[in-house]
Write a protein that binds this DNA or RNA. Structure first.
Lengths: 139, 139
DNA sequence: ATACTGCGTTTTCATTGAAAGCATAATTCA
DNA sequence: TGAATTATGCTTTCAATGAAAACGCAGTAT
């Protein structure tokens, strides 16, 4: 299951994408509209900024806005950034690989199956973007 | 990512399935061969027993053994039992459904995508069994 | 200059994961 | 019957993580 943090990240991104105007949006506004604890949200938005997905402006008229186009932000990227590995085991992860003790991966039936799961999952999460999930939200 | 507990559960099940002989196997033997903390393993095996997957016998010559055939134990069942929901969000889970606040699921782009992920995942985890992953392990 | 707004650092609190300890119940075998 | 063997039940512990709250600093517009 995705953590609260990741869920909040998606809600914030969807909100920004739906507002559509390129104008900066206040953290406080996102927090209120999406009922996210404001200090927690600050953290999340900062991570998204450091990853190059969002950018921000301080002072009056400041706030957060997209640095990349929402249609360029793949869901897999957001999940890896906020949540961590997508795979179900470390020894199956592409981006966070770690060898698992006590199992020879070449012949481990479990990791073979979980690789299939990973690939099926990634095929979806790498093809869908923030723009996709924001559009459906508006319907 | 799957918890240690779930990984241990799979290791134990694979070990039992590979031994093949219907004879009871000591908790201590599984714990040693698979380097699993013994008291933790006791708990796990007990859960598997309560779920009807394994059975046990006390006293000399006792231990754990399969109650169902390994080829009847789907991976999805084990994960749901030990780990919990397979879906990435509660509002997308079949077996552990919970409504999520602040989002109308019918029109939520995120939950729509995560439903696709869930279905792709389940298609694999519902079709593979303990027997499958145990066989590959022996190759 | 000052109000506004994001940034940084630290602390807290509750929950969960991952065990360890110890006593009890069932079974076998001598 | 009794002792050894093995699983079961119940409680406690310990560390890590998730989810925040507190407080103050830094940049920007007017």
């Amino acid at each position: 299951m995705l953590s609260m943090k990741t869920q909040y990240a998606f809600k914030a991104l969807m909100y920004l994408a739906q507002k559509d105007t390129g104008e900066p949006v206040l953290i406080a506004e996102i927090a209120e509209k999406k009922t996210i604890p404001i200090k927690f949200l600050e953290n999340i938005l900062l991570e998204l900024k450091k990853a190059g997905i969002l950018d921000s402006k301080k002072g009056k008229g400041g706030g957060y806005f997209f640095n990349q186009r929402p249609s360029d932000v793949r869901l897999a990227k957001v999940i890896r950034l906020i949540e961590g590995p997508i795979a179900l085991l470390p020894c199956v992860s592409l981006n966070f690989y770690q060898k698992c003790k006590n199992c020879d991966e070449r012949h481990c039936g479990l990791s073979n199956v979980l690789k299939e799961v990973r690939d099926a999952t990634l095929q979806i999460l790498e093809s869908k973007t923030v723009a996709d999930i924001a559009m459906l939200g508006v319907v």
